[in-house]
Design a protein around this nucleic acid. Structure first.
Length: 266
DNA sequence: AAAAACATCAACCGCGCAATT
DNA sequence: AAATTGCGCGGTTGATGTTTT
């Protein structure tokens, strides 16, 4: 039986391999018994809570390095990307969003994404909606991320990019499916801490047409954009202070790369 | 200003799997 | 090998906060 007085137990959502290595199994030693005994002597058997409840409270709230506050655009984009590959594998998705819990991501998906799908009167797993994610939301998120990145170095560049976003809003393309401006609300609603004051997509009044017919959702597929992107970035991901493993995923190079991939059919 | 409706998020529940006895 | 126990995951609920009427 594995045990830990500190953090998580087995190979769970947040366990790094390093932590797993430190987990002791097998019979309890006298020293361990002593530590446990002393702890209970000092603190008592404590709360009238189940182990499950304590674990959840720790993982989702008390654990150090839990990120609080709004889900950033970058995080939203990553959630959409990873969910397109893995579906509702919240803990797996959370592994790539340091400091975010599976619960938070799940809540985000249900309260924002599923809600938008309902407003569009389509199933969240339908091709139509997945295409909306791929061809509408994700590119716009990228635009905004790019705008944010530029605004930190140049206000003029921000203005130019905002114009670019507007220019991309094709209000009358021949579409197999049409996303109303309301669906873009997801993008503008959940703003990051470094919100850039670009025009809200939900304010534009434009409707956006879909392009292409490629299948965005490829659960379990390990090819094309997803795999390459992961090789580029996730392989280096570790939980550290800056939230992205000490590596800034959202360099201009990466943003350009992701834009190219989004533009391709796969 | 109050009530109703809506949105968010923390916590609970049940299931399945893995480890242990 | 079978039974038991514990844990982690995903789905769901309910309390609380916020917005709208």
């Amino acid at each position: 039986m594995e045990r830990s007085l500190s953090e998580n137990g087995s190979s769970g959502t947040y366990g790094s391999s390093e932590e797993e290595m430190s987990i002791t199994k097998g019979p309890w030693t006298e020293e361990e018994d002593s530590v446990l005994f002393d702890y209970i002597t000092v603190h008592g058997e404590g709360l009238k809570r189940t182990g499950k409840s304590c674990r959840l409270r720790w993982l989702n709230y008390l654990r150090p390095n839990v990120r609080r506050g709004n889900i950033t655009l970058q995080e939203q984009l990553m959630i959409l990307d990873l969910h397109s590959r893995w579906g509702n594998r919240w803990s797996k998705i959370a592994e790539h969003l340091p400091g975010r819990t599976d619960n938070e991501i799940k809540n985000y998906w249900r309260t924002r994404v599923v809600k938008q799908a309902k407003q569009l009167k389509c199933d969240v797993n339908s091709k139509q909606f997945r295409d909306t994610l791929r061809f509408e939301w994700m590119p716009r998120m990228l635009e905004r991320i790019q705008a944010q990145a530029s605004s930190s170095s140049s206000g003029q560049a921000q203005t130019a990019l905002i114009s670019n976003v507007k220019a991309h809003s094709d209000p009358c393309g021949g579409a197999t499916a049409t996303a109303t401006a309301s669906n873009a609300g997801l993008v503008s609603e959940a703003s990051s801490a470094v919100e850039v004051h670009a025009p809200s997509l939900s304010d534009s009044g434009a409707s956006y047409s879909l392009v292409g017919g490629g299948s965005w959702c490829s659960y379990g597929a390990e090819e094309g954009y997803s795999r390459v992107w992961e090789e580029r970035n996730y392989g280096y991901s570790e939980i550290t202070g800056n939230g992205f493993g000490g590596v800034d995923l959202w360099t201009e190079e990466n943003i350009c790369f992701l834009q190219q991939q989004l533009a391709d059919d796969f």
